Simulated assay, not measured.
Amino acid sequence: MNVLNNKPMLCLWVCAASLSGCFDGNDNNTAMTPMPEPEPEPLMVSYEVTVDNLTQGQPLSPITLILHSEGTLWEIGQPASVALEKVAESGDNEDLLVLDMAMASASGEGLTMPGNAQTITINIEDVTNAYLSVAAMLGKSNDAFTGLNAQGLAGLMVGESWTLFTNAYDAGTEANTEDMASIGAVGGEGFSEVRDDARNMVTMHPGIVSVDDGLATSALTQEQRFDNPVARIRITRTQ
């Protein structure tokens, strides 16, 4: 065998073996798989809503707050929803708190008496352009309520506050008889499925007449009369 004649083949074999021995599958030039980026922390958005009762003789029912992206709680000239009717006739806000359009909701505790105020906190994640709606019954009435209807919050920055004044509305679901049998706060019926107000639509409230001002069957006195505005609402974005 002529080893010299096979020298090129030997060299090729040695080189190939050498390369094979150096390759162990861990090529340092191979691109590393990128690590997934961590999920961003949710942005917590918080508001403090303070409601002042400006009336002299009307307690406000537990105050309802709702944050939503569409819809309204009421529309002047249109029938009230059953959820709003329950608030306006009896102060029951359970249905309002769980409306389909509500992205977040909160309720005050107990009554807000005349001259007093109550502050409620409501929180939501990752939404800074929600609408705020507020509702509460004027307790000594047939179906009077007050509140905010889809107040946009997009322009309210952290640390800023807005103050708004609200009027009294008539749910149009119960006639304003002011009699003992129809007002829950003075011992009568609260919410009734039967709507006996012929208008059956939300309007501005005409006010309380009272027994002192000539409505002989009224269970209310001049103390329960009110002028607009009936509430002051201060909204503060705290986070």
Rank of each mutant, 00 (worst) to 15 (best):
Glu174Val: 05
Glu39Lys: 11
Val49Arg: 03
Met204Pro: 02
Glu48Lys: 02
Leu111Asn: 07
Ser210Ala: 15
Leu215Thr: 07
Thr128Cys: 06
Ile76Gly: 03
Gln78Asn: 11
Met32Leu: 14
Ser46Asn: 12
Ala102Trp: 09
Gly110Trp: 09
Ala231Gly: 00
Ser107Leu: 13
Leu73Val: 08
Ser69Pro: 01
Phe165Trp: 03
Leu99Val: 13
Ala171Leu: 03
Met32His: 10
Phe145Ile: 09
Val194Phe: 05
Leu4Cys: 05
Leu12Tyr: 01
Asp92Ser: 12
Ser141Val: 12
Ile124Arg: 07
Glu48Gly: 01
Glu189Leu: 11
Thr163Lys: 10
Asn29Cys: 08
Asn116Gln: 15
Ala83Arg: 04
Pro34Gln: 10
Glu94Ala: 14
Pro79Arg: 13
Asp126Pro: 05
Leu111His: 12
Gln56Gly: 05
Ala117Cys: 08
Ser133Trp: 12
Asp179Asn: 15
Glu39Pro: 00
Thr163Cys: 02
Lys7Arg: 09
Thr30Pro: 00
Pro79Thr: 14
Leu73Cys: 04
Gln78Cys: 05
Ile76Cys: 02
Val98Phe: 03
Ala219Val: 14
Ala136Gly: 04
Met35Leu: 14
Ala216Pro: 06
Ala175Trp: 02
Cys15His: 01
Asn29Leu: 13
Thr30Val: 11
Met44Pro: 01
Thr217Ile: 12
Arg234Ile: 14
Cys22Ser: 13
Lys7Thr: 15
Trp13Ser: 14
Thr33His: 05
Leu132Pro: 05
Pro42Asn: 10
Asn2Tyr: 06
Gly184Cys: 07
Gly155His: 03
Thr33Arg: 04
Ala150Lys: 10
Arg232Val: 04
Met9Val: 14
Ala231Leu: 01
Ala168Val: 12
Ala198Gln: 08
Asn5Ala: 15
Pro59Trp: 06
Glu178Trp: 04
Val98His: 06
